[in-house]
């Protein structure tokens, strides 16, 4: 299983979502993408997108102001 990390710390909407979309579209061979963001709105934004696309995903609230979103490509 190919894993990739995407660090969008310090970025605000809509850039985290656009980066996530772009990376997923560009790197076709990865199965799991872990997105790190420190904005709760960006986390919910990516959450909404994953939900509307039907991806499997998990959100970890690391409780220090960082959210880790694990997106699994089917």
């Amino acid at each position: 299983m190919a894993k990739e990390r995407l660090d969008v710390l310090g970025e605000v909407c809509p850039i985290p979502l656009l980066m996530t979309q772009g990376v997923l579209a560009k790197l076709k061979n990865i199965d799991v993408l872990i997105v790190e963001t420190d904005s709760n709105q960006a986390a919910r934004n990516i959450f909404n997108w994953c939900e509307s696309c039907g991806f499997k995903f998990e959100i970890d609230d690391l409780e220090n102001g960082i959210w880790e979103i694990t997106i699994k490509k089917e």
Binding site: C13, L17, Q21, Q41, N48, S52
Partner: peptide, 23 residues
């Protein structure tokens, strides 16, 4: 505002990016 994560700029940009009208 913080708890509900409402953001008016996302309301418009989400429509363009992935046609999501939730916000």
């Amino acid at each position: 505002f913080y708890r509900s994560g409402i953001c008016f700029s996302t309301a418009f940009s989400d429509i363009v990016i992935f046609r999501n009208f939730r916000m």
